[in-house]
């Protein structure tokens, strides 16, 4: 049992940064902006999170610094793509490359230094419950934040007037402008929110996941977050499902690869047979499994084309230039 709880704990640790970054990008894309710079903003968050914790001796200072850095870094994208109306795809890619480069430069002197870990918060009483207690009430603080953030994003997008305005801009910026909605200003705010989330997700990597700085330590998680948003058809709860599914399968396949068959004999028959089969396929296939499974599941749950089209921001990626 202990083993299983430990494994499930690593699942939430793997899922949390994906969830946070994807939620930020979801809000950005709902406003009609496609920011492919998530990976770059995330890696900037990772390095500044680590640096902040080192300098101030407190992981929370690192988190704050990462959030601010992510938001400021996204402003660069905002200025180019929103004010100057450059191509969003190219600008986003440039932001990613820039982020990887700058973070490598900043992080040079942090390589090999042991980092500060964010300690888990045990909710008194509740965390003593068997299995679920540790899983739901004995996690790192960013886990709680990520769940609260999911609920907050749902509430904001679908229950508030500001969220309605944001979705309207994503549907048709021309119509929104004609109604007198400040399209560019709201998109700036959305982009900065996305940047802040990516920064926070990066801080999770360097303060919780593996408390150290390694160059390019996001390792493509920003891209996974981007894909999650699309496959979740721009719905926050589906992003949550996708992030956890991806996290779970990543961790499971790692464990299956590491264990020998004799170590797995405690498993129930069917699962043992499945694990045995999985072990017999090439390792490359196993590494691809999380991607494959996430895509398949999210495609299946969003197979209602009508609903998908209603949720797809129609103005996504189109630059807006008001006619003045």
């Amino acid at each position: 049992m202990e083993t299983w709880v430990a494994i499930l704990l690593t699942v939430t640790t793997a899922a949390t940064p994906l969830l946070i970054a994807a939620l930020g990008e979801l809000v950005v894309e709902r406003s009609g902006v496609l920011n492919l710079g998530v990976e770059g903003m995330m890696v900037m968050g990772a390095v500044t999170g680590f640096a902040g914790a080192q300098i101030f001796g407190d992981p929370w200072a690192g988190v704050a610094l990462a959030i601010v850095t992510g938001a400021l870094f996204s402003l660069l994208f905002g200025f180019l793509a929103l004010t100057l109306a450059t191509n969003q795809v190219a600008t986003g890619l440039a932001l990613t490359l820039l982020g990887i480069g700058i973070s490598g430069m900043i992080g040079e002197k942090f390589i090999g230094i042991p980092g500060l870990r964010m300690e888990p918060i045990f909710v008194p009483g509740l965390s003593d419950m068997p299995v679920v207690g540790r899983l739901l009430f004995g996690q790192d603080p960013l886990f709680y934040i990520s769940i609260a953030l999911t609920v907050a994003v749902v509430w904001f997008l679908f229950r508030t007037r500001a969220g309605l305005t944001l979705r309207a801009i994503g549907d048709s910026h021309g119509s929104a402008h004609a109604l007198g909605i400040k399209v560019i200003r709201i998109r700036y705010l959305a982009v900065m929110f996305g940047g802040a989330c990516a920064g926070l997700a990066g801080a999770h990597l360097s303060l919780v996941y593996t408390p150290q700085w390694v160059e390019n330590m996001t390792a493509g998680r920003g891209w996974i977050a981007l894909a999650l948003v699309v496959f979740a058809s721009w719905r926050p709860f589906r992003v949550l499902i996708g992030a956890y599914l991806f996290g779970a399968i990543t961790i499971m396949q790692l464990h299956i690869q590491a264990m020998t068959l004799s170590e797995m004999t405690f498993l129930p028959g069917a699962i043992y047979a499945l694990a045995a089969w999985v072990k017999s396929v090439p390792a490359q296939f196993l590494s691809a499994l999380p991607y494959l499974a996430t895509v398949v599941v999210l495609v299946l749950i969003s197979r209602n084309r009508r609903l998908t089209m209603m949720n797809t921001p129609a103005a996504l990626g189109r630059p807006f230039v008001p006619d003045r």
Binding site: L164, A176, N311
Partner: peptide
């Protein structure tokens, strides 16, 4: 709008993915 000018656009300025009431609320 504050002055009292309202407009019905030629190419409708409506949001297809939203409901009629939401469209009205936005303006």
């Amino acid at each position: 709008r504050k002055l009292g000018v309202g407009m019905v656009f030629q190419h409708f300025s409506l949001f297809e993915a939203l409901t009629a009431a939401e469209n009205i609320a936005l303006s």
